[in-house]
C-alpha cells in the first residue's frame, strides 16, 4: 500500500482543526476501525471555552475511548485524546501530557502550532500531523516542525472543507504529503493502525 511507504511505525496522529472541523470529526471517527494501535490527539479551536461536552459528542460516534486530557495523564495507545478548552496541550518526553495556560498563540488557546511542535519533539518520524478545516493560519508552522523531525503531513482537501483557508494555507506553505478528503483520511489512519 502506498501509505505504508510514507511512514514505517506510526505511534501518534495529531489532528488540528478550527471552524468546520467538528463536522469532519463526526464523520471521521465512526470510520476508524477499533481497536486502534496508535494514539490520536485532537486539538480544536473552540468558540465556547467552558464547553466540556465535546468529548461526549465525539465519544458517541466511536467505540474507541475518547478522553479530554487532564494534566499529566499518561498517553495510552488506543485512545483518542482531546485538548481541553483554554489550555495549550503539550506532550512530555516520558509520554505524559502537560497543560499550559500561557499566552494565546495565533489568537488561540489551545493552539495547533503548540501541540504540533511538542508532538514532533516527542514522536519525530513516528508522527502524522493532520490539518482540517479552518479560517486562520494556525497549524502551518507546526506542520513544518513535524516535517523537520521526519513526520508525515496530511491536509484536508480544501474543496471539502467548510473553511478552506487553513488547509489551503498549509498546502501552500508546508511540504504536505497527502491532500485527502474525510473518507480517504479514515482509510489512511486505519492503514497506519494496522501496520503497527
Amino acid at each position: 500500500m502506498a501509505e505504508n511507504k510514507l511512514i514505517n511505525a506510526c505511534k501518534a496522529v495529531v489532528i488540528g482543526g478550527s471552524a468546520g472541523s467538528i463536522e469532519v470529526l463526526l464523520k471521521l471517527l465512526p470510520a476508524l476501525s477499533s481497536p486502534l494501535s496508535l494514539v490520536i490527539m485532537i486539538v480544536l479551536h473552540r468558540k465556547n471555552s467552558t464547553d466540556s461536552s465535546l468529548a461526549d459528542l465525539l465519544s458517541s460516534r466511536t467505540t474507541i475511548r475518547v478522553q479530554e486530557v487532564e494534566d499529566k495523564d499518561p498517553v495510552v495507545p488506543g485512545t483518542i485524546y482531546l485538548a481541553p478548552a483554554d489550555y495549550h496541550l503539550l506532550i512530555e518526553k516520558d509520554e505524559v501530557f502537560s497543560l499550559d495556560d500561557s499566552e494565546k498563540v495565533n489568537y488561540s488557546r489551545p493552539s495547533l502550532d503548540v501541540t504540533f511542535e511538542s508532538a514532533a519533539d516527542v514522536y519525530g518520524s513516528s508522527l502524522v500531523g493532520i490539518l482540517l478545516s479552518g479560517a486562520n493560519a494556525d497549524g502551518t508552522a507546526g506542520l513544518n516542525l513535524i516535517k523537520a523531525r521526519g513526520g508525515v503531513l496530511i491536509a484536508q482537501k480544501p474543496e471539502t472543507a467548510q473553511a478552506a483557508f487553513m488547509p489551503q494555507h498549509a498546502i501552500q506553505n508546508a511540504p504536505i504529503d497527502r491532500v485527502l478528503d474525510v473518507e480517504e483520511m479514515a482509510v489512511f489512519i486505519n492503514s497506519l493502525s494496522r501496520v503497527n
Binding site: I91, S98, S102
Partner: peptide
C-alpha cells in the same frame, strides 16, 4: 518543571 512547557518559555 514540566519540560515541554519550560522549553517553550
Amino acid at each position: 518543571y514540566a519540560r515541554a512547557s519550560l522549553k517553550r518559555r
